[in-house]
Write a protein that binds this DNA or RNA. Structure first.
Length: 191
DNA sequence: TGCCCGATTAACT
DNA sequence: GTTAATCGGGCAA
């Protein structure tokens, strides 16, 4: 049986949690898959929503680890984060892509795309597939409807610069499963 | 109150 | 390769 991820798992450096989550399984209401891509954010760095202090929107980031921070992106999409580190660090990982493994018929219906690779290949896409919205902001990750399981076995993790940001764009805080077909964008292979 | 723009996506040329 | 869609947060005034 795979191990369930607890608050203790998330209460560590965001740069330990992020690679450890590659290959982990995320389910919401029984629908989801393996995490194959994510990014780290920390309040000391200007690309983070928590940079500049606590506001109504980012309040969950300033709370304890192990909770979901969900925000609206570009007025259209939803993005899912997991709060990490000791309370007050205002650090989180943005879940960017899943390899779909559970509830594929439901996700296909919600997404309406012809190729299963596009079901969860992007932060907005996976939220649509799992039907995660602002209503899930602040929910605990160790209780239903969330289920998180540690990966079983070894994985090869690759890293690179984060996507879609203009500030601190040089930091290599994007993590992915090497060779996955379900990434939102490929990682630049190192020579 | 008004203005700018973003941790995106899909549909274009 | 480019761009429209769409809207709330954050900040200036």
């Amino acid at each position: 049986m795979p191990r369930r991820l607890t608050r203790a798992f998330f209460s560590r450096s965001v740069h330990k949690v992020a690679p450890d989550l590659i290959g982990a399984t995320l389910l919401f209401d029984g629908v989801g898959g393996r995490i194959v891509e994510l990014e780290a954010y920390h309040h000391t760095e200007p690309a983070a929503h928590s940079f500049g202090g606590r506001t109504e929107r980012n309040a969950v980031m300033f709370g304890p680890a192990g909770y979901a921070y969900v925000y609206r992106s570009y007025g259209i999409h939803w993005c899912l984060n997991f709060v990490c580190e000791p309370e007050g660090s205002a650090a989180a990982v943005l879940i960017r892509a899943l390899e779909p493994t559970a509830g594929l018929p439901v996700m296909r219906r919600r997404r309406g795309v012809p190729d299963d690779r596009l079901l969860c290949a992007g932060p907005g896409r996976l939220c649509e597939a799992l039907r995660i919205t602002h209503g899930q902001n602040g929910l605990a990750l160790d209780k239903p409807p969330f289920e998180l399981f540690a990966r079983s076995g070894q994985v090869q993790v690759v890293e690179g610069p984060r996507i879609g940001i203009t500030k601190a764009a040089d930091l290599p805080w994007r993590y992915g499963l090497k060779g996955s077909r379900f990434l939102s964008k490929p990682f630049k292979s190192r020579a």
